[in-house]
Every structure is written in C-alpha cells, then in structure tokens.
Computed example of a mutant assay.
Amino acid sequence: MKKKPKLKGSQVIFSLVFLVLGYIVAFSYHVTQSDSEKTAISGKQWNRDLELRDQLVELENKNFTLQKELHEKQERVRKIETELSQEAQIYFNLAEDTEKLRMYLGKMGVMGQGVEVILADGAYNPEEENINNYIVHEHHVFKVINELYISGASAIAVNGQRLSHNSYILCNGPVIEIDGYQHPAPFVITAIGNGDVLASALNLTGGVKDSLVNENIQFSLVQKAEIVMEPLLKAS
C-alpha cells in the first residue's frame, strides 16, 4: 500500500494564493458587471430626462404662442366692441335728433315743464277813442312767441293749438287766425322748456311783459310743472 505524498509548504502557500486570487478576480468581475448595469440605467434615465425636458420646452413654446394669439384676439374683440359702442352712440344720437325734429314739426305729442302766458284785452276806457289801443293783436302774440323760442322753448301752443315751423298768425277782427283756425281772446300761450329760463326772459325789465303792459294788454304768467301738447292739427 502506497502512502499519500505529503504537501510541501510551498505548495500550500501557492494554493492559498491562487484561491485568494480567484476570489479577487471573481469579485472584480461582479463589481464591474454591477457598475456596467448602473451606467446603462443612468444613460437611459438621462435620455428620458432629456426627452421630457424637450417636450416641456415645446409645450411652453406652444403655450406662449397660444397666449400671444389670445391677446391678439382679445385686442381685436376690444376694438370691435369700441366700434360697436361708437356706432350705437351714433344711432342713439340720430334717434334722439329724429325725436327732436318730430317734436319741432309737431308730429308727436310732447310733455314737459314750461310756462303758461295769458294775454287778455285791457279794461275798457271810455276816454280812449280807439278800441284797438286796448285789445290783443297778432303782433302782441308774436312778441311772446318769438321771445319763448329765443329762450329755448321746444314746443308752443296758442289756445291748445300747437305751432309748427311754418305756422302763420293773422288778425281777423276780434279774433286771430292760426293756420286756418280762429281763436278769440284771451289767448293762452303755453310753451314747453326750462320754466325758470322762459319766465326770466319774459319778465326782463323793459322786455316783452313791460312792452305789452304799456300797450294796455293784461299779462299773466305761471310756471307749470307739466304741460301736455297733442300732435299738430291740420286745417281741412
């Protein structure tokens, strides 16, 4: 029976060295593989982050473009609204002017504050030989009407009959004729307008009232809070 050869000391040492060296190589390979995997994962994450950043930049650019378009359209809408409001104001002014013209022409009924003036024949004076010196004539009525128009009256009527831009007044004996209609004294002249202004104009010292009183005409004036006038009548 053969005996097993004994290991020499140098062989034991070499065995241990090779064993350790193998472990080191295996460990190094494992670490290298792990680092490679981590590097690969990090590269993919970087590419993903870069892609997401590019998408974000693209979305921000689109958002900026859309905001710019929105502001431009809002500005266009504002301009259109301004133009429409200006047109609406123009149409409103035209409608208002039309109403005023209809009112001046007597095509529509009107209502407002104003004054009422009454002209009556003077008291009979036996010492006065000429009767015409104390009765109301058409020129007396004209004085009042002209002063009222000058003072801003928008509508005037005599004994309830409205005057137009081409009305005429004639004296016909004891009555006056307005656009073909006869009216006896006393003559009630109503005017729509600023009552304070109209009354002040007629009551001026040396004005219409003083002139008529000096001609023996009875003159009275009352301010009215509301005067109603019907559309113009036409002579048949």
Rank of each mutant, 00 (worst) to 15 (best):
M1F: 06
K2D: 04
G9Y: 10
L16D: 14
L16Q: 15
V17G: 07
V17K: 12
F18M: 13
L21N: 07
G22C: 05
I24T: 08
V25Q: 09
Y29V: 11
Y29M: 12
H30Q: 14
T32F: 12
E37A: 11
K38L: 08
K38W: 04
T39S: 15
A40V: 05
G43K: 14
Q45K: 10
W46G: 13
N47R: 13
D49N: 14
R53D: 11
E58I: 06
E60L: 06
K62F: 06
K68S: 13
E69G: 01
E69R: 15
L70H: 07
E75L: 10
R78L: 11
E81C: 03
T82E: 14
T82H: 12
L84G: 03
Q86A: 15
Q86F: 10
E87T: 11
F92H: 13
N93G: 03
L94M: 12
L94N: 12
L105Y: 09
G106M: 03
G106A: 02
G106F: 00
M108T: 14
Q113Y: 04
G114T: 07
V115A: 01
E116V: 11
V117H: 00
V117Q: 01
A120K: 10
D121I: 05
G122V: 04
G122M: 04
E128I: 08
E129I: 11
N130S: 06
I131F: 13
N132E: 13
N132D: 13
N132Y: 09
I135V: 12
H137G: 06
E138N: 11
H139V: 08
K143P: 01
Y149P: 02
I150R: 14
S154D: 08
A155G: 07
I156A: 03
A157Y: 02
N159L: 05
L163A: 03
S164N: 10
H165V: 13
S167R: 02
Y168S: 14
Y168A: 12
I169D: 05
C171A: 15
G173N: 03
I176R: 03
I176T: 02
D179G: 01
Y181Q: 07
Q182P: 02
Q182I: 08
A185G: 08
I189T: 02
D196I: 11
V197C: 05
V197N: 11
A199H: 06
A199M: 08
S200P: 04
L202D: 01
L204C: 06
G207K: 05
K209Q: 09
S211N: 14
S211I: 03
V213C: 04
I217H: 04
Q218F: 05
S220I: 04
Q223S: 11
E226A: 10
M229T: 04
E230T: 12
P231Y: 01
L233A: 13
K234S: 14
K234C: 06
